[in-house]
Design a protein around this nucleic acid. Structure first.
Lengths: 225, 225
DNA sequence: TATCTATTCAAGATAATTATTGAATAGATA
DNA sequence: TATCTATTCAATAATTATCTTGAATAGATA
């Protein structure tokens, strides 16, 4: 193989990955998939795309080997092919926030509802929970919770929150979380809870982001040995 | 701002980053830029692109805020806007190798010349150097060495290697490195050195990759505190 | 001032990507 | 077997990206 062919081969493959992430629709699909496996129809309705278009984008993601699919009954489930895909999303978002400060500003504005929704970091939240002063509430859909959730978190999907208020301790902090820093569910939950007198907060990340920080930490412990 | 507008805003910005990485030419430009600042003409000749096309791609990278430029005399120097860009390249490559095993196979085949060029990891190399059994040789261009290099490495650009053989210790291992795992310079150097009787090896990464591993390690030490 | 050099800009042809529509398929369920 | 459901495929039109060519610019140098 000639040197130039080798470079074309390598860069061609690298950009298969980046091309797959280069469409806002596909980026969003991957973002949802980082919460766990989902069917085409579910992804279509969550992203407000047509089913055909969703399917087409999923084909593109599969060609780039970022997702894999499996069949259960007559549903096709798609999921991330590798946890490193979630890491790539994470780093791309972080770089976007660094290079376009507006992005972070708008995120904070929107997810805190202009400052009225207090935010807590995961480490702070963990400390509160361990000290018995707070309870974690996962407000995502049940299957997303089942797929992965923060330890000790309760599952109360946002649309069930109002009818299940009685289950919540009035004397503790309630710390909600959802898919990640750009998801508004936890902010909606905090607003509802605060309007009912609870001391509510939201996390600044979701289980996928948290898993990445954890993994990086353990990678490094291995490297250090 | 409506919830949908917020998502479009956020995903639109995330994909500005990915779109910039989605062309093999631009990916290659960034890869060269991770070795240090370079002029348009230099980048054009290294990537075998026309100057106009190179400039156009650099504009695109600047729009995506992945590079910044500065002017010295009548040369425009471009450089990475953030070290995290190099990290994004690194992770994209790693994921491409995981998902497309051929990429790693071809890389190993090409950079070891079918197995005849022995490869060493950076940690192994560092240990050999510290024990006084090996010398590190940076075979990249002088300005790339000046921009950043592994500590204790000698600078001997590949095209000067033959005339400077007398400077090299015949009793130690010679460990060469270049831009990274996909760069062939170090392999060429090893072939030359071995043909003259030296005990030569190449590193499996370059200074940019090495810096990323280091940074990750120190990030995690901070997190642990 | 004239000229040279490095870079950018503008226009155009070609190719690739996207969303939409409607048809096709494959596997359940009745 | 017939029907239903979830998904994919195929064709189209609209948009966007790419490379080439040649002209324009801005700053050095003579």
């Amino acid at each position: 193989m000639e040197a130039r062919d080798f470079k074309n081969f390598a860069y061609g493959h690298f950009t298969k990955i980046s091309k797959a992430l280069a469409s806002p629709r596909r980026f969003e699909l991957l973002d949802y998939l980082s919460q766990g496996p989902k069917t085409v129809e579910r992804l279509a309705s969550e992203t407000h795309m047509s089913v055909a278009n969703t399917s087409q984008h999923l084909q593109a993601l599969r060609e780039a080997r970022l997702v894999v699919s499996s069949k259960v009954k007559n549903h096709h489930y798609y999921e991330l092919a590798d946890q490193e895909v979630a890491e790539l999303l994470h780093i791309t978002k972080r770089l976007a926030e660094r290079r376009f400060p507006d992005v972070a500003d708008v995120r904070v504005m929107e997810t805190t509802d202009g400052g009225s929704v207090p935010v807590m970091s995961t480490s702070q939240a963990m400390a509160e929970v361990e000290a018995g002063r707070a309870v974690l509430i996962d407000v995502r859909a049940q299957d997303e919770y089942d797929s992965r959730h923060l330890s000790s978190a309760l599952s109360i999907p946002l649309d069930k929150l109002e009818e299940r208020l009685a289950e919540l301790p009035a004397t503790k902090k309630l710390i909600t979380y959802c898919r990640g820093s750009y998801c508004l569910y936890a902010s909606d939950a905090v607003r509802l809870l605060r309007s009912r007198g609870f001391d509510a907060y939201r996390l600044d990340e979701g289980p996928a982001d948290f898993a990445i920080s954890r993994e990086r930490a353990s990678d490094e412990q291995e490297d250090a040995r």
